[in-house]
């Protein structure tokens, strides 16, 4: 039991040190991002934008005509919302719409890519897998200034507050495994 506690403590210290940069504004690997669990009665969608073509263009994700968050190249944000069907749109030269079914307690992923247009790039919102997000070499949370006015996108401080318990739980599982 003592060994387990020591392991948990040391892992938490290590996590705090390792996780802090991921919570801050620094770029980290997608595999290092701690995504908090969705609280009861809500579901989550992680919107991300891989780098590549059209990096100078923004990809503003909207719902019901209100902006949820901008999504620059290599950025991500977590939208926490009610279960059910939600329609999201992105718009520049052309509009693209993606509808997703948000499930309580579950996290889904969606990506925005910039396609070539006639005069400018066209954002394309599509369903994605977690693997695609995790394999990104560098990813950064959207700045709080670029979020809203529509609610739901977790601000950096909310991400940090929500992610610490998740990291602790993860560490405890790892400690249990190590103790065994």
């Amino acid at each position: 039991m003592k060994i387990r506690n020591v392991l948990v403590a040391s892992l938490l210290v290590a996590t705090a040190a390792a996780a802090t940069p991921a919570m801050a504004d620094d770029k980290v690997a997608g595999s290092e991002v701690v995504i908090p669990d969705a609280p009861e009665g809500t579901g989550q969608i992680v919107f991300f934008r891989p780098g590549g073509a059209g990096f100078a263009m923004g990809c503003s994700v909207n719902e019901n005509g209100e902006k949820i968050s901008s999504l620059g190249s290599g950025r991500y944000f977590v939208l926490r919302t009610t279960p059910g069907r939600h329609e999201f749109s992105v718009k520049s030269e052309a509009k693209d719409v993606l509808a997703l079914e948000v499930e309580e307690g579950e996290t889904q992923f969606a990506k925005c890519k910039i396609k070539m247009g006639i005069l400018m790039g066209r954002p394309d919102l599509a369903p994605a897998k977690e693997d695609e997000f995790r394999k990104m070499n560098k990813v950064q949370l959207v700045d709080a200034d670029d979020m809203g006015p529509a609610p739901g996108a977790l601000r950096p401080e909310e991400m940090m507050a929500a992610a610490v318990p998740a990291a602790e739980a993860e560490m405890e599982v790892e400690a249990d495994a190590a103790a065994e």
Partner: peptide, 17 residues
């Protein structure tokens, strides 16, 4: 391509043009 919790699929796209 993939499944999420509901079935969300984007097909394998052609190479970037």
């Amino acid at each position: 391509m993939g499944t999420v919790h509901t079935l969300n699929i984007a097909s394998a796209a052609a190479p970037i043009p």
